[in-house]
Write a protein that binds this DNA or RNA. Structure first.
Lengths: 234, 234
DNA sequence: ACAAAAGTGTTGAGGGTACACCCATGG
DNA sequence: CCATGGGTGTACCCTCAACACTTTTGT
């Protein structure tokens, strides 16, 4: 079954990896897009990525290809999203595509080539192929994970104030998040901790803000079993 | 970037689709496996599936291939899990694999070929390739979705009593689920409703059990925004 | 002193588990 | 009338949103 012994020749197809790279920029969730210079979809915007190499894994491949677009040091999170393989998705012939969700922390400004720019995720330009659907899948995934994992670490810089962090959450979720309650939720879950330092207040006054950091910088599920959790005792 | 204009020939690879098919059988979460008749991994157990056809989509392909193993009418849910593409995952040459999670309702007994049998998911036989990892991914996905979606509809038959349903949940989750509370949770969420009929009690007596059904028979998220939900008013 | 921004205390609602209790049926 | 299994009522707990109130700074 895995090797068809007879019958039609083994079907093979081109395979590409693509990345939905998000960053909070100017208080908006933004995605890194690349402007296509030739048909099909010439002049439209597409996700960065490309064909996989003959001997590399999928994760490996998207990391390699992103290194040309985004400094790898800036990429704080990367996870697989979905694979699309409708026969008609690529006009030039059968091509499967595996998309990834990547996150870059706010505050950094990775050097990107001229033909790639950041676009607000809520106001996408005309996009080629099925890439717009992938952006939406990425946004859904991010929003969901913000509520039950520590994925915020990948959106925020190493250290941050609570009002900054609530800004990142608001931008990603698309609605207001009160800094005062966010602080308690993330502290109770053990996601963040105080650094002990604080930021002097600006010219308009105000109490100086304490600095926080995420305790872990890799994905952890902090709120599993919200319901239907196992019984407390046997 | 999508079409390498020069350089090495376009890298292509074989692509297969595989399915982690779960069903609750004898109060255990079971997975349908196929016994390999030839190397590599001869005699070990693998997931049903195979190479995709030249002109079919991924979902289409796995559905077609499963039709030979499991009656399609019995397949109440199917969703993509993950794609694996490590160069070394297939000894006979580069092969990418996209795995799916499929569910068959309890009570049915789909006709399966001789070389496929059901195995308890918590006690897997020796498995070939990276298929055991896919089974675990499937089980994690199922467990997670049981707590925030109506995916139970795909595990249960059309109509069921609450104690039967709690049995399915217990088997899938791996811990006890009290029928009395499950009833309230699922009713409040609008996932299930009474049919109005009931099942006569057995020879040992007891009050007759009311029959329920799921209101929807496709996946719905019923408990989104458990936390960090949008503000109640603007 | 006053405005501004950060942080704390408190209240109330919602949703879930646990468990005692009531109900319907067979022997 | 008792055992058995289903169904209801309820108490408690935990988490979070909302909001008033306090603290700390700049001008």
């Amino acid at each position: 079954m895995h090797e068809t012994k007879a019958g039609p020749p083994a079907p093979v197809a081109a395979h590409e990896v693509l990345a939905v790279i998000f960053q909070i920029r100017q208080r908006r969730l933004s995605v890194l897009l690349w402007r296509r210079a030739r048909p099909p979809y010439e002049g439209m915007w597409v996700l960065p990525g490309g064909r996989i190499g003959a001997t590399e894994g999928l994760d490996e491949s998207i990391r390699r290809q992103l290194a040309q677009k985004v400094d790898v040091c800036d990429l704080t999170h990367l996870e697989q999203l979905e694979t699309r393989g409708d026969p008609g998705r690529h006009p030039n012939g059968r091509t499967l595509a595996t998309s990834y969700l990547g996150l870059v922390p706010a505050g950094t400004d990775p050097a990107t080539p001229e033909d790639t720019t950041w676009h607000p995720a809520s106001d996408l330009p005309p996009m080629g192929f099925d890439h717009a659907a992938m952006v939406h899948a990425g946004r859904r995934r991010l929003r969901a994970k913000l509520s039950y994992t520590n994925i915020g670490f990948a959106l925020a810089p190493r250290e941050f104030t609570m009002s900054e962090l609530s800004g990142y959450y608001s931008a990603a979720l698309g609605h207001d998040v009160a800094a005062t309650n966010l602080r308690r939720v993330l502290l109770r879950r053990g996601q963040i901790e105080e650094t002990g330092e604080s930021v002097p207040s600006g010219r308009s006054g105000g109490r100086p803000a304490a600095l926080f950091r995420f305790r872990a910088r890799e994905l952890e599920i902090t709120d599993a079993f919200a319901v239907l959790r196992p019984p407390s005792r046997e």
